[in-house]
Design a protein around this nucleic acid. Structure first.
Lengths: 249, 249
DNA sequence: CGTCACCTTGATAGTTCTCAAGGGTCGTGG
DNA sequence: CCACGACCCTTGAGAACTATCAAGGTGACG
């Protein structure tokens, strides 16, 4: 089996995400079923798009490696970043077959995705109710993340939002073996932070400096570093409900 | 069969939501399966809660009639309303079995819910993959609504947010036979609007007055009225992607 | 060396929040 | 019947936060 770019395709039974502490392992039997369902792989260079707003797609993806953002472009030229996607996340379930995508998905780092046929879903979950339940669980988790973002945008100040986002990303990175300790090497521009949190670029910049001065968050172009996670969580009253391992396809 | 309050329970085959234009009908066979899965009914007086933040629940609900809000209470005493629920919506799927709820759900009007056992889900979708897919579809739709709210909070001014919410509620009401024409009789306080949109009560009040002056939205305690929907949609650049009928349980 | 993408700073304007106070309606109990 | 509390809406004034406009700085790269 070969992926689109010619590299050999990873067999789900040897999925590199197995064993990652934030992700829940499958039985070998389930892995075989996922392998049957998997159609191929897609590798994206940083900056490229997996979905384009307005288009339709016959596929659903899963993140095998890398980090991506999902965003909506508005009429007035601004954009709202909706969420970040880490390994194991299911991307693109938001639309039904006949509906055009309402957002774009872009790779923040070089990324690799597993490709599944959108219209095979019903059969897939029919023959694997446990995996079907996992998909529901993932959708619920994604929704839950959006809830947190809503709370951040609705009830928190600029500095709190930024600190919240830093912790959120760090924790997602930790759970998916992308971050080490308090440090997440990930290239996020201040413009992207602003577009995610509903802030202007200038104010984002000043808030970042304030957070750095206070020793709470050090967020540079290439790295997010939180010196004392507990203090930072306290600052944003981050709900530290210990997440259960996520299922993934 | 009797519901918890002694009234006779509605048979899914005669579900009053069948035929509602925004909802997709099921085959009789599917209705029978839903009936088997349905555990009972719950009726809630206005102001009562279906879920309480921090508690666990063995049930998942579906809205049979009425309107509810889902919200999160924060440490500092404020709250963020996450979404409104209309007939046909699936409520409470956000948590897995073992996780406590991260939000409360409260009836905005007298409401009636169908009750399903949370731990019967896997079997249910296993024997009814189409219905399982419907559940995924509903979860994706809910997520899609949260995305819209995020865009509103992130990128729009106070007045635009309020107008957006009015249109959102009106459209949901229209699709579920709760609204007639441009008018939705629903009791929403200004405090609730503020808690949904991340605004202060005072500013919400002033923005409402401005919208009324401009003839865009007339939103009183008991009714939302949008004189000219197209003009209002224009004002908020409301994405009027025609929704497909929603599946429901 | 010029361009591009990103970050930084200053000054000013605008939006939104907070505090404070008052008014309307409704149901309840004296 | 009236007083009272509860809940909701309204208005004014000042403060705080955030946006906008404008300009300059850095580093990578062809």
């Amino acid at each position: 089996m070969r992926a689109a770019d010619g590299k050999s395709m990873i067999d789900c039974v040897n999925c590199p995400l197995l064993g990652c502490p934030g992700l829940r392992d499958h039985t070998v039997e389930q892995l075989r079923r996922i392998r049957e369902f998997k159609e191929g792989e897609l590798s994206l260079d940083r900056g490229l798009q997996a979905f384009i707003q307005g288009a339709q797609s016959a596929h659903v993806y899963t993140v095998l490696s890398g980090v991506l953002i999902r965003y909506r472009l508005l009429d007035d030229g601004t954009r709202q970043i909706i969420n970040f996607h880490f390994p194991g996340d299911l991307v693109g379930l938001q639309a039904t077959l006949s509906e055009p995508m309402k957002h774009s998905v872009e790779a923040l780092t070089d990324a690799r995705m597993c490709v599944f046929p959108r219209d095979g879903f019903i059969d897939f979950i029919g023959s694997n109710p446990h995996l079907g339940y996992d998909v529901i669980w993932l959708a619920a988790k994604e929704e839950s993340a959006l809830e947190e973002h809503l709370v951040a945008l609705g009830r928190r100040s600029a500095r709190e939002r930024i600190a919240y986002l830093a912790i959120f990303l760090l924790e997602r990175g930790q759970g998916t073996c992308v971050a080490e300790g308090n440090r997440l090497r990930l290239s996020v521009t201040q413009t992207q932070i602003a577009d995610m949190l509903g802030l202007s670029l200038v104010h984002t910049n000043r808030s970042l400096q304030a957070l750095r001065r206070d020793g709470l968050i050090e967020w540079t172009l290439n790295e997010i570093y939180v010196p004392e996670i507990e203090a930072a969580k306290e600052f944003v009253s981050f709900d530290t409900a210990l997440d259960q391992p996520r299922p993934f396809l």
